[in-house]
Write a protein that binds this DNA or RNA. Sequence first.
DNA 1: TTGTTATTGTGAAAAACGGAACAATATGAT
DNA 2: ATCATATTGTTCCGTTTTTCACAATAACAA
Lengths: 210, 210
Amino acid sequence: MITNKNCIIRLSRYKNALYRLQALGFVKVFSDNLADAVGGTASQVRKDFSIFGISGNKKGGYQIDSLLEKLNSILGKDQLQKVIVVGAGHIGSALMRYRGFEKEGIKIIAGFDIDPAKINRSNPIPVLPLEEIKAFIKTNNIRIAILAVPDIAAQQAADMICAAGVKGILNFAPLGLKGAEGCIINNVNVEIELENLIYFVNVTEKTRKA
Amino acid sequence: MITNKNCIIRLSRYKNALYRLQALGFVKVFSDNLADAVGGTASQVRKDFSIFGISGNKKGGYQIDSLLEKLNSILGKDQLQKVIVVGAGHIGSALMRYRGFEKEGIKIIAGFDIDPAKINRSNPIPVLPLEEIKAFIKTNNIRIAILAVPDIAAQQAADMICAAGVKGILNFAPLGLKGAEGCIINNVNVEIELENLIYFVNVTEKTRKA
DNA sequence: TTGTTATTGTGAAAAACGGAACAATATGAT
DNA sequence: ATCATATTGTTCCGTTTTTCACAATAACAA
Ligand SMILES: NC(=O)c1ccc[n+]([C@@H]2O[C@H](COP(=O)([O-])OP(=O)(O)OC[C@H]3O[C@@H](n4cnc5c(N)ncnc54)[C@H](O)[C@@H]3O)[C@@H](O)[C@H]2O)c1
Ligand SMILES: NC(=O)c1ccc[n+]([C@@H]2O[C@H](COP(=O)([O-])OP(=O)(O)OC[C@H]3O[C@@H](n4cnc5c(N)ncnc54)[C@H](O)[C@@H]3O)[C@@H](O)[C@H]2O)c1
């Protein structure tokens, strides 16, 4: 089984690049085109495909449409993914308003908040009270949740939704959560990303001077 | 030179964990405490420190305050980092309102937008018209920018701010940007993070069944 | 048909990474 | 003072990941 997160991220990037190429009218693609498009090497593109048993045509490259089918199937994009957002504050509501997920087959179907003032059942994407979350997860068979609550509430909220049946959490709170058994937690940590960027900017600047 | 992004991310995590330990009243820490706190191994903690010439005391562990000083210096946190936000839409304004960066010594000092309706000079963090961005970057010696414009505008905006002197971009648009020479681009791609999470949830589910 | 060329698919080499092990040693106990 | 113990710092080793290299072969040209 593949455990290499970077490899799967590359598959997503290939997929996105392929859609762009397709939109530009391309029908087939070579490994080095894709490598250019995502900023990698042609070898790696072919190796990644090889791992998943994807093959192209000697001298003919890859057929974009069939390649996309295979990547989409690997990435689980052949079925709509229903997602909930926990915490309808700044980040949570930005995500709920974002249209970009739909073209990816990801649909945020509800938000949840502890603050009564945030509740809104008549929204296209309703914001519901936290008390209803457990039942909602079970009824709608929700497996993926986005966690956008304040840091202090994050662990507790994570525990709760794991217990209710959620299998994967995308956590925006800048702290490491202990995942319950059988629940995967991925983090989006903007602070750390910025810090990282600052570090590398500083070192390249320093080494450039030297 | 260190090129291992994960290693630097671990330093950030150590740093954050250390602040939490310090707030709890701890004065010294052992490598295995830190490992626990961030979900790693004690060996790796020591190795990471060793790479940067950080040393502790045999049998005495590490002095938290001096450790923090060293980590902060490595991570460039000994000086305030001024950052601008390009694109004051949903994500951009969520980031501008976010208080969490300050405690990290990161200060968003202005936003920029092409839409006149978004301009607001009297905000604590002003939103300025795009025409002023070049001069602003030069005057304020801005090195880091957060890019939160629509996908279609992202490459052009990146080119512009690179040309104006920005050295690092944290890009929220879900596409790979070509960085100008001497400008580092890091991406925060929520779609891909979700996709990744979905993939791993799917495969663990499948292998669990089998 | 034959030869030439471009491109894949993969096995092998290299590099990067992380973890285990252990010698060195400071600390505290007796 | 001596010993036992805990913990670091670093070397070594296995694994993972990336890159290299090239044989296999499909497409095309002559
Ligand atoms: N806003 C940003 O730009 C930004 C950037 C980086 C990280 N973050 C992180 O994202 C998280 C959310 O940030 P934000 O700015 O959206 O905060 P926010 O305060 O605007 O929103 C948090 C929301 O969560 C709700 N809430 C609180 N406890 C809850 C619970 N137990 N269950 C459900 N809802 C609950 C609150 O009522 C509020 O509506 C924080 O952890 C923050 O550190 C935010
Ligand atoms: N909102 C989200 O939750 C979310 C999630 C994932 C990714 N993203 C990505 O983040 C980016 C921004 O998303 P958003 O939801 O904030 O969009 P938005 O439309 O709310 O905001 C974009 C802002 O950029 C401004 N803008 C347009 N062209 C510009 C230019 N050339 N220079 C400066 N400003 C310009 C617009 O006036 C607008 O205010 C997009 O690339 C989107 O794909 C957003």
